[in-house]
């Protein structure tokens, strides 16, 4: 992993690929390793490094001009995403802020111990507990705590957003699988329905697709 990588390889394009191809590959890669994808993931630092590598490769491959803009664009967003997390304690007391700081620094065990010692179990407490479970890979507990936080404070955007993101995450995986050909090709039932619908629609307009019905 230490060796210097071929920038074309990093982007996953052939040497001499067209500008369009490079741009598309770059966009796909950035989407894949975007900080949003790895937000509550223990590997987020590595994903960030990978993104940096991709940005550098793109910069190298496509020449300086436009790329500084693109790479700044993404890194700017990633910094914003990070600070959003740490700012979020709306009016919470000092210990919640500390827990957030520990989570941001990746110090999960200490954050957990501190959180458990807080007697005031309000919506933020459940939200932070959900976040911690997320990082540990305890997805069921994480969702239960997040839901509790949302129930206790339905107007809080941060809590609802976290819950929505979790729900979206498993759909992302299924989407990726579908892109690779999973479930491709209509099944028999779909085809029949499709024919039947087309026929009905044609008939509505006065025509007919299947003469016998």
């Amino acid at each position: 992993m230490v060796k210097v990588k071929n920038p074309y390889e990093v982007l996953g394009v052939k040497q001499g690929a067209s500008e369009e191809e490079i741009k598309k590959a770059y966009r796909d890669q950035v989407k894949k390793y975007h900080p949003d994808q790895y937000q509550d993931n223990p590997l987020s630092k590595l994903a960030e490094e990978k993104l940096k590598e991709i940005n550098e490769a793109y910069e190298y491959v496509s020449g300086k001009g436009q790329t500084t803009k693109a790479s700044n664009g993404w890194s700017g967003r990633s910094a914003a995403a990070g600070s959003q997390g740490s700012q979020g304690s709306q009016g919470g007391d000092e210990s919640f802020k500390q827990v957030r700081m520990l989570i941001n620094n990746g110090n999960i065990a200490d954050a957990e111990a501190l959180l458990e010692s807080i007697p005031n179990k309000n919506a933020e407490w459940f939200y932070l507990r959900g976040l911690l479970f997320m990082k540990k890979g305890w997805y069921n507990e994480a969702v239960m705590n997040m839901k509790q936080a949302v129930n206790m404070d339905p107007s809080n955007y941060e809590y609802r957003d976290a819950l929505n993101k979790m729900n979206a995450n498993s759909n992302v995986y299924r989407g990726n699988a579908n892109n690779r050909g999973y479930g491709a090709g209509p099944n028999f039932c779909d085809m029949c329905t499709c024919l039947w619908c087309s026929d009905s629609m044609c008939e509505c307009c006065g025509g007919d697709l299947i003469g016998c019905c």
Partner: peptide, 10 residues
């Protein structure tokens, strides 16, 4: 699916 998603990200 969450497990598989995280595994895929890794």
């Amino acid at each position: 699916l969450y497990c598989l998603g995280e595994a895929a990200k890794a």
